[in-house]
Computed example of a mutant assay.
Amino acid sequence: MDEKVGDLIQLLEERDLMENTIIVFQSDHGFSREEIALGGGGTAGIYRGSKFSLFEGGIRVPAFITWRGRISANNVEDSFVTNIDWFPTLAEMCNIKLPVRKIDGKSMVPILNGKSDKGTHKTFFWQSLGTRENPQWAVRDGQWKLLHRPYEAEEEELTEDGYFLVNLKDDPAETTNLAGSHPDIVNNLFEKYSTWIKNVDQQK
């Protein structure tokens, strides 16, 4: 992959296109442990979870963007943004009007321009795997994150209803379930998730 990325950059340089080309590189999930990939490989550092998991190791991935002469080089940003934000971001950078319909992503341009240090989403939702009646899902609101039946969790770690609550500021590695000591936060985040999934179902 390194060689092919290098080939692409070289071609753009040869054709004098670097100043007119935006390059984005991002993984779509954490490292794999799949049998089909011979056990996969890699590490998420301190973060728990891997591909398919809604723990941070499965969904927190590095991303890079470069646009020579337009985006400052060598900046590192740790604001909370998501892959759905690339669509409105690239549209704004290229002066392309967005379609007139609901778009979940939000432009990262203020962050990339150094005019904001806030993420694009205060609240965000995920759902995958499991069954329709008992899915794996998660909701993040600020630094609080509630997971339901998270892949790669031990059954004894979860509440009777399958919840795992964490404050990412205090516990970024998601080691301790706080659901039992913060039922009010669990209920609040569950209500947010319930409203979101109903809206998703209505739009199908």
Rank of each mutant, 00 (worst) to 15 (best):
M1E: 12
K4P: 11
V5P: 09
V5M: 13
R15A: 02
M18I: 08
T21Q: 10
I23R: 15
I23N: 03
S27G: 11
E34V: 07
E35T: 15
G42F: 15
T43S: 09
T43D: 08
I46R: 11
Y47P: 09
G49H: 06
S53E: 00
L54K: 01
G57R: 02
I65W: 12
T66Y: 09
T66A: 13
T66W: 02
W67K: 14
W67T: 13
W67P: 03
R68A: 01
G69D: 08
I71H: 01
A73Y: 02
N74P: 12
N74W: 10
V76C: 02
E77M: 09
E77S: 04
D78T: 15
S79D: 11
S79K: 14
T82H: 06
I84C: 11
A91N: 08
E92H: 13
E92V: 13
C94E: 08
I96D: 06
L98C: 01
P99A: 07
K102N: 10
V109P: 15
P110C: 10
I111Y: 02
G114W: 05
S116Q: 08
S116A: 10
T120P: 02
T120H: 07
T120L: 09
W126A: 02
S128K: 01
T131M: 03
T131A: 01
N134T: 11
P135I: 12
Q143E: 13
W144Q: 01
E152L: 11
E152T: 00
A153Q: 07
E155C: 01
E155P: 03
E156W: 00
E157D: 09
T159H: 07
G162N: 10
N167L: 06
K169F: 00
K169E: 14
A173C: 01
T175M: 00
A179S: 13
G180Q: 12
D184P: 11
D184E: 14
I185Q: 05
N187D: 07
N188L: 13
N188D: 10
N188Q: 12
L189N: 05
K192Q: 06
T195N: 05
I197R: 11
K198W: 03
N199R: 10
V200H: 02
Q203C: 06
K204W: 09
K204T: 14
